[in-house]
């Protein structure tokens, strides 16, 4: 049975769902009505380093801060007895595509105060660098590695900034960037060739290789006290593919056929 109100509803499909009165799911705007006490304290403490303050989805407060002083501000939020954001729930990034700057997102929570706050840093595509917060919260170690792996944001002062999901020798770029095609930059044949020709050393970190190669040291000719670097280079000489540097730069991406991949790009910037 055709319901009379259904035609109106179909006409309204383009405009998205109706929002309930208490859910203020609107586009970004300056939070005026209810302000977050922490943001007020941040403004009082750091002044211009706090850029602007937005409320999303009703009660999610987001504060934008300048990238240069992010570590200082976050450290204050962690250690100030009045703030005490002792749990860093999440570090992630958002790429809006079309050449817009990336947003680095810190989701904070204070267990004793039961308050949350989202802190964002805007990073232009030309300078994807931020200070690591690993000295403030240990959990940032892996979270920042993931952001580095997926978005290519470099974290200054991170103790162990390696890729985490993708293999260390992955040369196709950073998968969660909008200019990264869904199926990767290289052809499937090239991906397979690279996977098969990778030397086993690529599966270990430099520290691990140092331990492993130390064990084999007696086997090295002439009792020479080879340090780990030269030993690694010597073993790599056996495999010409491994000896050549595996660049991880944009210049290297042209190797792959991007025909089918480009079709899947959404909001590509190139």
């Amino acid at each position: 049975m055709a319901k009379p109100e259904l035609k109106d509803a179909i006409a309204g499909l383009e405009s998205g769902p109706e929002t309930t009165p208490n859910g203020v799911a609107t586009a970004r705007g300056e939070a005026a009505a209810e302000s977050h006490p922490t943001v007020a304290a941040l403004r009082a403490q750091f002044g211009d380093a706090v850029l602007h303050h937005t409320v999303y989805s009703g009660d999610e407060h987001v504060v934008y801060i300048v990238p240069e002083r992010s570590q200082e501000l976050l450290s204050w939020l962690r250690h100030d007895p009045g703030q005490c954001f002792d749990l860093l729930k999440d570090v992630t990034a958002v790429d809006y595509g079309a050449g817009r700057p990336l947003e680095l997102v810190y989701e904070l929570w204070s267990v004793p105060r039961r308050v949350g706050l989202r802190v964002k840093v805007t990073l232009p595509l030309e300078s994807l660098e931020a200070d690591s917060v690993e000295p403030i919260w240990k959990t940032a170690n892996w979270l920042e590695r993931e952001v580095y792996d997926m978005f290519g944001i470099h974290f200054r002062g991170h103790p162990d900034l390696r890729r985490i999901m993708m293999p260390e020798n992955y040369a196709e770029g950073h998968p969660l960037r909008k200019d990264f095609p869904l199926r990767g930059r290289f052809s499937r044949a090239e991906q397979t060739r690279r996977a098969l020709s990778a030397p086993p050393e690529d599966n270990y970190t430099p520290d691990e290789l140092a331990v492993a190669l130390q064990e084999e040291r007696p086997a090295v000719a002439g009792g020479e006290v080879a340090d780990e670097r030269s030993h690694a280079a010597a073993s790599a000489d056996l495999d010409p593919a491994a000896a050549s540097p595996r660049p991880n730069t944009a210049a290297d991406w042209s190797l792959g056929s991007s025909g089918s991949a480009a079709a899947g790009t959404q909001g590509a910037t190139q």
Binding site: L6, A9, I10, P17, A25, Y56, V94
Partner: peptide
């Protein structure tokens, strides 16, 4: 027919969400 169109629109175009974010 209207329900068929309705179904088609929701499935093919998806539900639109307002600009914003939620954690």
């Amino acid at each position: 027919m209207e329900s068929m169109i309705h179904h088609f629109k929701v499935v093919m175009e998806g539900v639109k969400a307002p600009a914003g974010e939620s954690w």
